[in-house]
């Protein structure tokens, strides 16, 4: 069973996942951020692989990625960092990056490293379903990896049903037609969309992300899904207040 499926067996309401960028604010902060998030009882963690041209990301994550790359982060360093906490870290990790990073590293080599680090779930926002069907499904199956698909307000019902049939960890419900970044309140239009997805009675668990930023948006989104992902708002806080203040950011959201 996949690590995220196991997690859902223990808890399937009000899950909080945090996205962070490896090597940010400092090169060696990757494992420190994970440790702090674990201590704050975050349910699972999205480990962001900094990319030079992240098309699905807004200014905050572009900026943290840029800084991390300037710090000298790269995939080999990230895999080494993750290896050092493999035995101690108990919070499930999900790797999030762009397809070209895997392609250039070597698809098999990349998958093997991910598995070696004790990670079994990946999110690649620019991996389209047709490529998954034609090639990547077999690759991921070979390594026991699970791919998370994203759906949006514009994804058709037929396509959502198909994605549901391919999903083993969860479906990533993109909260609005948007790139990553904090947006403020959740609109009525978004609620209508969340309800529509919820009422489809999919077999997959649903996690809402993009634009979730605080207690209020977390609580609202959790009414329509099993949990949410916070990214940009967390990174902004991390950049401004540092690792020591991670708990101050998380606690008000989940308490």
């Amino acid at each position: 069973m996949n690590s995220i499926q196991k997690l859902f067996q223990q808890k399937d309401k009000n899950l909080l996942s945090i996205y962070f960028t490896c090597g940010y604010p400092k090169l060696e902060d990757t494992t420190k951020v994970i440790a702090a998030l674990e201590k704050s009882n975050v349910d699972f963690i999205e480990v962001g692989l900094p990319y030079s041209d992240p098309l699905a990301d807004g200014p905050t994550i572009q900026d943290s990625s840029h800084k991390a790359l300037e710090n000298g982060i790269n995939l080999d360093i990230i895999f080494n960092q993750l290896m050092t906490i493999k035995e101690t870290n108990k919070t499930p990790l999900v790797l999030m990056g762009y397809l070209n990073q895997m392609l250039k590293y070597g698809e098999d080599r990349f998958c093997q490293k991910v598995v070696d680090c004790g990670i079994d779930t990946v999110i690649l926002p620019d991996l389209p379903m047709v490529e998954f069907e034609n090639h990547y499904k077999a690759l991921f199956d070979k390594y026991g990896l699970t791919n998370v698909f994203l759906i949006t307000p514009h994804t058709s019902e037929e396509r959502i049903r198909k994605i549901d049939s391919y999903s083993k960890a969860f479906i990533y419900v993109v909260a609005s037609a948007s790139i990553t970044g904090a947006k403020g309140d959740i609109s009525n239009q978004q609620v209508v969309y969340f309800e529509r997805i919820k009422n489809m009675n999919l077999q997959s668990k649903l996690i809402i992300g993009f634009g979730i930023s605080d207690k209020q948006t977390f609580t609202t989104a959790c009414k329509y899904a099993n949990g949410t992902i916070i990214g940009s708002a967390f990174i902004k806080n991390l950049g401004e207040n540092g690792i020591d203040k991670i708990d101050d950011f998380i606690k008000p959201i989940i308490s």
């Binding site: 041209d53 995939l75 070209n100 392609l103 250039k104």
Partner: peptide, 21 residues
């Protein structure tokens, strides 16, 4: 360049050994 993905297309791309453009 080597094989890579830019702006939605797989093509020849100037990139470093980690796929950064």
């Amino acid at each position: 360049g080597q094989v890579g993905i830019i702006h939605g297309s797989k093509t020849i791309l100037m990139q470093d050994e980690y796929g950064q453009i």
